[in-house]
Amino acid sequence: MDSDGQIIEWAAVGSDIGPLLLAATGKGLVRVVFHADAEVREKALRQLAARFGAPPVEAPESTRLAEPISRLAAYFAGELHEFALPLDWALTSGFNRQVLRELATGVPYGSVVGYGDLASRVRQPGAAQAVGAAMGANPLPIVVPCHRVVESDGGLGGFGGGLETKRRLLALEGVLPQPLF
């Protein structure tokens, strides 16, 4: 249950980058998990249960999840450039939340920002490493586009979903050439 005593609903969905786990509370989308095979799903669901005090309920037909599922499908089809979804920020706080909110609103589709530049935008110049930690702790990847944060020298930097996933997301957005498969 979330902080309002509501059940947390989840579903696993396919995507161009592999299975994703989506979880939502009554406030909005609360978690997106990459590479959501059975083992990864179970770990994520245990973490959500521990955080919210009750096990999430599998609900692939959930009205809470319908819009995020639809918008992710449109994103991967190249038809959606801005998610504009209700988000539940319960899994992040403090500096991380500040950085992620700036990222969500200030780094549009098809663009990238450096770790240091993002630190400066939240008035913490010199906190590039802390921005990197915030990206690694992002509970809402893709929707809060941590894949758009790169090194100032043009390197990709790290990525919780793996560098190949980051490359594919940036290629989808036209920042990098499409990978050859």
Rank of each mutant, 00 (worst) to 15 (best):
M1Q: 13
M1Y: 11
M1V: 13
D2A: 15
D2C: 13
I8N: 08
I8L: 15
I8P: 00
W10I: 03
W10R: 14
V13C: 09
G14W: 10
S15L: 07
D16S: 14
D16M: 15
I17D: 06
G18L: 13
P19I: 04
P19C: 01
L21W: 08
L21G: 09
A24K: 13
G26M: 00
K27Y: 02
L29S: 10
R31A: 15
V33L: 07
F34W: 12
A36D: 03
D37Y: 12
A38P: 01
A38Q: 12
E39V: 07
E39S: 12
R41G: 04
E42Q: 11
E42V: 08
A44W: 11
A44K: 03
R46I: 10
R46W: 01
R46L: 11
Q47Y: 05
Q47G: 09
A49V: 11
A50Q: 15
A50K: 15
F52H: 08
G53R: 07
G53Q: 04
A54S: 06
P55W: 09
P55E: 14
E58G: 01
A59K: 06
S62R: 09
R64A: 15
R64V: 05
L65A: 12
P68Y: 12
S70Q: 12
R71Y: 05
R71H: 09
A77C: 03
A77E: 14
A77F: 11
G78M: 06
E79G: 06
H81V: 12
F83L: 01
L85C: 08
P86H: 11
L87M: 12
L87D: 08
D88I: 15
L91H: 05
T92H: 05
S93K: 14
S93R: 14
R97A: 13
R97S: 02
Q98E: 14
V99Y: 02
V99N: 02
V99M: 05
L100F: 10
L100M: 13
L100R: 13
R101H: 11
R101K: 15
R101G: 08
E102L: 12
E102C: 08
T105I: 05
G106E: 03
V107W: 00
Y109L: 03
G110K: 13
G110T: 03
G110P: 00
V112M: 05
V112R: 07
V113L: 00
G114I: 02
G114T: 13
A119P: 00
V122K: 09
V122M: 10
V122N: 07
Q124Y: 09
Q124P: 01
P125Q: 04
A127F: 10
A128C: 02
A128F: 02
Q129E: 05
A130G: 00
V131S: 08
V131R: 01
G132L: 12
M135K: 04
A137S: 14
A137G: 06
N138P: 04
N138Y: 13
P139D: 15
I142A: 07
I142Q: 06
I142P: 01
V144W: 02
P145H: 14
P145A: 15
P145L: 13
H147R: 03
V149H: 11
V149S: 04
V149D: 04
V150F: 02
V150I: 13
E151I: 06
D153M: 02
G154H: 02
G154I: 06
G160I: 01
G161L: 09
G162D: 02
E164V: 13
K166N: 03
R167H: 11
R167T: 09
L169P: 00
A171E: 11
E173G: 05
G174R: 10
G174A: 12
P177E: 07
Q178H: 10
P179V: 12
L180S: 11
F181H: 12
